[in-house]
């Protein structure tokens, strides 16, 4: 592999000013370096930074960027107040990986498109302008929503789907040393004609924390459908937070994994549910909203059906319709 320099940050500024690629748990970056998909000249290791705390914050929680996926999933406050997040985390990867994987790294993990990870194939995300080998190829893991003719990849994270439903905010340290907060709803980008630009993070910027708002009312459900029972990326996943009051859905937030270039959230789906009585017909109508513009790529056409079914099953569970049945 290509030789590279390795630096260790002892303060956040070291990371943002290093002109280097950040490495946290390394579970994604090192794999991509071995495959020569990413070949940075310099790495800056941030794991010694003091960013591994979960603190009470503005009625919610502030999760340091270096909190591991294992620690986050096991945290009592997360399990009690944000079970959708805990379940999403535990649905991802394996125990060993979760012990290493960090909150910041998880948000920024790259797509699992097998053409992206194969340097012999054209890929606009890896090599802008080279084309997209996935279109017309094996697309089981690819998008049905929000894709472009330049890229049909999906974002693989489970954690980010739950955070999308929770409306988390991402705290970023800029290269100037200033800090800004961006809602996760604005953090990720659709591929458009620049699939290599995946988030609003500028080069050198460091994620320092994820901020969860106060615990939402209602039931939280995370459901992941995949090709084996564990250790596989989602074909479709759904995170749902649904509050039913007096037989009507008072509030609903749904987010979806495996369907798009980003953890998908469509406010129109939430609105289609809110105020109505939970019924299978209502769920279908909301799924119609979600999937109105869905496009299959051939081998992933089934995901349009699967997304509807998964969404309905999750809603049945979250609204109590399932127990009633």
């Amino acid at each position: 592999m290509k030789p590279f320099d390795y630096l260790r940050a002892s303060a956040p500024d070291d990371a943002t000013r290093a002109d280097a690629t950040i490495i946290a748990g390394g579970t994604n970056l090192l794999d991509l370096m071995k495959l020569q998909v990413m070949s940075p000249d310099r790495l800056v290791d941030i794991t010694r930074l003091d960013l591994d705390h979960i603190e009470d914050h503005e009625g919610g929680l502030r999760i340091g960027a270096l909190v591991t996926n294992s620690d986050l999933a096991a945290d009592d406050r997360i399990r009690r107040d944000y079970p959708v997040l805990s379940r999403a985390l535990l649905a991802g990867a394996s125990g060993q990986l979760r012990n290493k994987a960090t909150t910041g790294g998880n948000l920024l993990q790259r797509t699992r498109c097998p053409y992206f990870t194969d340097t012999a194939q054209p890929c606009n995300k890896r090599e802008p302008g080279s084309g997209c080998a996935a279109i017309g190829g094996q697309t089981r893991l690819h998008a049905i929503l929000g894709a472009s003719e330049h890229c049909i990849a999906t974002h693989p994270s489970d954690m980010a789907v739950a955070m999308q439903a929770l409306g988390a905010e991402i705290e970023i340290q800029e290269t100037t040393g200033a800090t800004r907060r961006v809602s996760i709803r604005e953090f990720y980008r659709l591929p458009g004609d620049t699939p290599h630009i995946e988030t609003v993070l500028a080069p050198g910027e460091l994620i320092t924390a994820v901020i969860l708002p106060a615990p939402p009312k209602g039931r939280q459900v995370y459901r992941k459908v995949r090709d084996r029972a564990s250790y596989a990326f989602a074909l479709v996943s759904v995170a749902a937070i649904v509050d039913v009051q007096d037989g009507r859905i008072a509030a609903a937030t749904l987010a979806f994994g495996g369907l798009a270039h980003k953890p998908w959230h469509d406010p129109a789906v939430d609105r289609a549910l809110e105020g109505a009585e939970p019924t299978p017909e209502l769920f279908d109508a909301a799924a119609d909203v979600l999937l109105a513009d869905a496009v299959g790529q051939g081998s992933n056409d089934f995901k349009i059906v699967l997304a509807r079914r998964t969404m309905k099953a999750v809603l049945a569970e979250a609204t109590g319709l399932k127990e009633a049945a």
Partner: peptide, 8 residues
């Protein structure tokens, strides 16, 4: 891959 033939 249907067009390129390699194992994806």
């Amino acid at each position: 891959d249907p067009a390129r033939g390699h194992i994806v």
